[in-house]
Design a protein around this nucleic acid. Structure first.
Lengths: 135, 135
DNA sequence: CGGGATCCCCCGCGATACTG
DNA sequence: CAGTATCGCGGGGGATCCCG
């Protein structure tokens, strides 16, 4: 698939072509709140106010924007119940769940390698003069 | 692990706790160029100027910043060869490859669901008045 | 060739106030 | 309760110039 055929890893099926598509997912998933919202919805449907209180730190504006964006992409389903106190529930769609699962892989990677990254940063920030500090 | 024990999906081992760690990975991977650089390096080591020409659109500033950041996290190895024309090679570290592989999962997800997302957006943007448009 | 320094612009995001 | 409208900032990232 690659131009030179140098198969050195599993993460390059077409390089720049796929990266273009990847950008969309990363933009989708890389913003500040989307993943957090999806993680919460992974435990089941939630109301707007539940999400708002659970996340604590998110502004109503950003919560709405995030939910709208996820709904637009077909990852979250919005259900309005027009009662005397209006009620709106949000839930992951099946496709939303598959993305959530995929992101789960990244979570596990983060757990596994967070200490490695932490160590790397310490070494790097230490100046680079002593690249073999005592444990 | 979850507070209520509602095991509804694979993507929530501790919800908010993990999301915190995930943020680091998403910040790492979510910026504009990191993944692209890693994808290129997935085909083998490259020189600075090779990367710069391959990516086309990246400024020297951003390429350097991206590479430095990846190097700091121990994901990319920088090798300086002090010759008459100075030469610097960059390559993925073993851990860098594992992240690259993990991201590969997202790429595949993107390929599989890009049309779904596209359709969802069309329907959503169409107004929401007719939510059952003819195929 | 491989970068650092500097300037500037854009927009993601937060805070606040108001509405159906 | 579930949002919408407006304002403002901070920083990510582009362009450009220069240096070892």
């Amino acid at each position: 698939m690659t131009e030179d055929g140098t198969s050195t890893g599993p993460a390059h099926t077409g390089v720049t072509d796929q990266v273009c598509e990847l950008r969309e997912v990363l933009d989708r998933v890389g913003d500040k709140w989307s993943v957090l919202v999806m993680a919460l919805l992974g435990d089941g449907p939630r109301r707007y106010s539940e999400l708002r209180r659970s996340i604590e730190g998110i502004s109503p504006r950003m919560l709405t924007l995030t939910l709208r964006s996820l709904e637009r992409d077909g990852l979250v389903l919005r259900t309005v119940t027009p009662s005397s106190p209006p009620r709106v529930d949000y839930a992951l769609t099946p496709v939303g769940r598959t993305l959530s699962a995929e992101v789960g892989g990244l979570i596990r990677w983060a757990e596994e390698h967070r200490s490695y990254i932490g160590r790397s940063r310490r070494v790097y920030d230490d100046g680079g003069a002593g690249d073999l500090p005592p444990v």
